[in-house]
Design a protein around this nucleic acid. Structure first.
Length: 567
DNA sequence: ATGCCTTTGAAGGGG
DNA sequence: CCCCTTCAAAGGCAT
């Protein structure tokens, strides 16, 4: 709420970001993975750094590599996102966004194409909605947006996926990126206009990029018709997902006439209307929320939806309920970051496994400057807000059970004793020296919390010398400690485990008891990189203070390898 | 074919 | 109020 208005924040001053970010980044990268990996990281790192300075350079190349081949629609889509992401960074660095309080936001908010929340692709339309909705929430400064508006290249449209289009739209987009899933290429629009169908998928594309533009990716089904910006509202099936209050949606967009770039901007504008107008309640009433997807529908990419799709039947009735449309959780700051950076890391590194990549990303996350993190935190906040507005009745619990329960037992396993030291995230284990290098320092940065006032956080000058921590820091191999535990397990005090250190106390002797001599216990051998990657877990963003202390901890910290105690 | 692994953060339930 | 659990993304790998 408030945020919406104020934009929350405001304050995120992004200006400073670069500076700190760079320094930290360098270090972190070094640490990164194995030798080879390290290099990669370096590159990555450097690329990041450079990005600010050089806009293009590495990133471009990377992008190029990836994008070239669109494997699947989805993939291509994502890649595009990534691509944008990089661009985003560049821009940010460039100061592109400086003006706006939320530098990235406006752009970021740009919808991915898919519905972020819907797990099933089918709903894609909803996704769009969601995205649009976002815009409104964000108070995006129209002007700013416009600046960039240069429509990148509509060419992407070629893919059936509207998503792609979005990507082009703004580099920032990536941040928000939602899963490509949504895309439901499959959802064929019942009535799509003949405008453009993808030969393969048959998905309709809008002829005018401008219209379609990112904002309205026509999803196959969704639009059905048209170019109407609101088109997304329409459910794949033909019926409008929501009964949207007509008022809002109906407004015709001026955008239609606009260029793609413009349209995007425009869309943002109107979207706001929608939101407000929309009573959240609508969906709740039982109406299928756009965002909601019924599992059944999970369409595969393409066309499968036939029956369902075609059936415009609005009647969700039982099925839906049974299936419960699965509304995904909004992505948190780190997730947003992962989406954005994953491609990059993958490109740089040889690693392909997500687990390993994620470890690296986790490290990098810590290394991010506050500003950088703040951006993501804010984005995440906004998304949460948006999500709440869109799905007022939705609860994270609703999704429980979808996945198999993870081994919750794990925790039991862990012997209490172990905990003391490192359990949790054992954060620190030894990694090869190299890794260590990185500075947790970033820790500082990492902390930003999403609190409403990021600025405050930012304010802190940070700059604690990262070095010490780095040196001393032991690496933690986090193989798989208990997953559950994360911080919580550790008692707060100790929790610090790794990083954290808890906070306050600067020193935590923690007994290091735990030393870890043991190697991680991965049941499976993880790639070296993964090991290296391991870092400590980050302290909660909220505790900035913790940062500072945290280095001390590191030193003392024993390595705890927490293997998976599971059992 | 399905789930695991891994990361951080958020949310909610239970004690 | 604190702790714990689950899910969000992603993709190779294991089962």
């Amino acid at each position: 709420m408030p945020q919406l208005n104020g934009g929350g924040g405001d304050e995120l001053g992004a200006n400073d970001e670069l500076i700190s970010f760079k320094d930290e980044g360098e270090q972190e990268e070094k640490i990164s993975e194995n030798v080879s990996a390290e290099r990669d990281l370096d590159d990555v790192k450097s690329s990041l750094v450079n990005e600010s300075e050089n806009n293009s350079s590495s990133s471009d190349s990377e992008q190029t590599e990836r994008r070239p081949q669109p494997r699947a629609d989805l993939e291509s889509y994502e890649k595009a996102r990534e691509y944008f992401t990089e661009a985003l960074r560049r821009q940010q660095d460039g100061g592109f966004f400086k003006s706006p309080h939320y530098p990235g936001y406006p752009f970021l908010m740009i919808p991915d194409l898919g519905n972020p929340y819907l797990s099933n692709g089918a709903l894609s339309p909803s996704a769009r909605t969601y995205l649009q909705m976002k815009w409104p929430l964000l108070d995006v400064p129209g002007t700013a947006a416009l600046k960039d508006s240069r429509s990148p290249t509509p060419g992407h449209l070629s893919n059936k996926v509207p998503v792609v289009q979005h990507a082009h739209m703004h580099p920032l987009t990536p941040l928000i990126t939602y899963s490509s899933e949504h895309f439901s290429p499959g959802t064929p629009p019942a009535h799509l206009s003949p405008e453009i169908l993808d030969p393969k998928t048959g998905i309709p594309r809008t002829p005018h990029p401008s219209e379609l533009s990112p904002y309205y990716p026509l999803s196959p089904g969704a639009m059905g018709q048209i170019p109407h910006p609101l088109g997304w509202l329409v459910p794949q099936q033909g019926q409008p997902m929501y009964p949207i209050t007509a008022g809002g949606f109906r407004h015709p967009y001026p955008a239609l006439a606009m260029n793609a770039s413009m349209s995007s901007l425009v869309s943002s504008r109107f979207s706001p209307h929608i939101v407000p107008h929309h009573p959240h309640g609508l969906h709740q009433t039982g109406i299928p929320h756009p965002a909601i997807v019924s599992p059944a529908i999970k369409q595969e990419p393409n066309g499968e939806l036939s029956p369902a799709a075609n059936t415009k039947s609005p009647v969700p009735t039982k099925k839906e309920e049974d299936k419960k449309p699965h509304i995904k959780k909004p992505l948190n700051a780190f997730m947003l970051y992962m989406k954005e950076m994953r491609a990059k890391v993958v490109a740089e590194c040889t690693l392909k496994e997500s687990a390993a990549i994620n470890q690296i990303l986790g490290r990098r996350w810590h290394s991010l400057s506050r500003e950088e993190q703040a951006k993501y935190y804010e984005l995440a906040r906004k998304e949460r807000q948006l999500h709440s507005q869109l799905y007022p009745g939705w609860s994270a619990r609703d999704n429980y059970g979808r996945r198999k329960k993870r081994k919750r037992d794990n925790k039991t396993d862990s012997t209490p004793e172990d905990f003391s030291a490192g359990n949790k995230k054992p954060c620190v284990q030894y990694l090869p020296q190299e890794k260590m290098i990185d500075s947790p320092a970033s820790s500082h940065g990492s902390m930003l919390d999403s609190p409403a006032t990021p600025s405050a956080a930012l304010a802190s000058p940070a700059a604690p010398a990262p070095t010490h921590s780095e040196q001393a820091q032991p690496l933690s191999l986090t193989t798989k400690p208990d997953r559950h535990h994360h911080f919580p397990l550790l008692s707060k005090p100790s929790s610090s485990s790794c990083t954290s250190s808890s906070s306050s106390s600067s020193s935590q002797p923690t007994s290091s008891s735990g030393s870890q001599s043991t190697p991680p216990l991965l049941s499976r051998p993880l790639p070296l990189a993964s090991l290296h990657a391991s870092l400590f877990s980050p302290p909660s963003p909220f505790h900035q203070a913790a940062f500072h202390s945290h280095h001390a901890l590191f030193q003392s910290q024993p390595l705890s390898l927490v293997t998976k105690s599971a059992d």
